[in-house]
Design a protein around this nucleic acid. Structure first.
Lengths: 201, 201
DNA sequence: GTGATAGTCCTAATCGTGTTAGGAGAACCG
DNA sequence: CGGTTCTCCTAACACGATTAGGACTATCAC
């Protein structure tokens, strides 16, 4: 019962160390792949013995979960900084680029957040709520652009995901891939328009 | 130097056991995920002690490699069984479905072959040659359909990959996803046509 | 101050992995 | 038969995540 005040004072340092551990984890994951992440390496990088990490995270999965949540917050921040011009193609493209950049600039993060590849890892309810919030925010942006039908969202998701995958695993020469992304956005918009026409007819 | 004849006689049994191990590995990977695959479990399933597996495969990666090669052969077989009607949309759709089905019906296999997610795994040169052959064969089929430009191939790859990812990780209700795939093929073909027009003009 | 308490970090040990060493026995060849 | 190869085993190692338990420190109530 007396622990509360202690916690309040110390928590600052605690949180700082926690962040330091998380930073180390990201660095290692980026360098050696998500699956290559090791608590031992993390501990070494922050100057601890492996078991000491457990003073900050209950398990390796808890570290993954914190990384997941951090990724969600970063993503949410970027989405909310987006502002629209009113030109559908332009807006769609910049919107898509937010997602695509986010994924491509850090494949380890992409793998953690969007591909389910870490053996027993499931984000906690708390972290998952963040993810839902982020995707919700993205969807709201798309609605403003005029993309409302669920099938359209599915299609756009598939398309962008596929582009990201291609960049991460094949990496065609930078320029070629950039053009591909733009062309894909054009294709998608043209398709959306043709569908509207069909319905009108 | 005298080993050859022995090897010839015994190899039959050897190959059979090897296949049995591989089957066990697939079964375990399908059930518990690719990363959940354990040599100990494999050994148990075929009634051996773990180290005995090393009489058949040099390492766990060698097992992965054999699975990879097996996947390539299966894929190649399906591609070569494809026959074309001459109707581009129809042919494209059936062709795409070969790839999509192949991926979706066994996510573990998809992960092994197309997502680079197993920590230190790289297919051997031999297995990789099989993969190249399979993709080459697929490309030849697409050329027959009329899809020749590399950008078109990139686009189609991205699109199908994205559709597969969506099915594996989200699984929207079966019917909805099936429609999405068909619509994507339509969209792609329409886009191809519009590009041709632009060039002609 | 003193003593209790919480927080941090350590060493030692457990358990589950892949993997190696080394040997026993069967199958096979001459 | 004698030698060779193959198959499988037990023992052991290295390296992961964890847990147990203790020392030391910072804090708090008094």
């Amino acid at each position: 019962m007396l622990g509360e005040p202690i916690r309040d004072r110390r928590s600052e340092r605690h949180e700082r160390t926690k962040a330091e551990i998380l930073d180390a984890a990201w660095e290692i994951a980026r360098a050696g792949g998500l699956a290559g992440l090791t608590l031992r390496d993390v501990a070494r990088k922050v100057g601890m013995r492996p078991p000491s990490v457990y003073s900050y995270f209950a398990s390796k999965h808890a570290v993954y979960d914190a990384m997941y949540a951090q990724g969600c917050r970063e993503f949410l921040g970027r989405v909310s900084r987006l502002d629209l011009t009113g030109d559908p193609l332009r807006d769609l493209t910049t919107g898509a680029w937010i997602f695509i950049d986010f994924c491509v600039e850090d494949p380890a993060r992409y793998q953690l957040m969007f591909q389910r590849t870490v053996p027993g890892f499931e984000p906690s309810a708390e972290s998952y709520a963040l993810a839902v919030q982020a995707l919700e925010s993205l969807r709201a942006g798309l609605v403003k652009i005029g993309i409302t039908a669920p099938e359209a969202l599915d299609m756009l998701t598939a398309l962008t995901t596929g582009l990201v995958d291609q960049q991460i695993s094949n990496d065609p020469g930078g320029d070629r891939w950039l053009k591909l992304v733009d062309e894909a956005m054009e294709m998608f918009l043209a398709h959306m328009r043709s569908r509207t026409h069909r319905k009108v007819r």
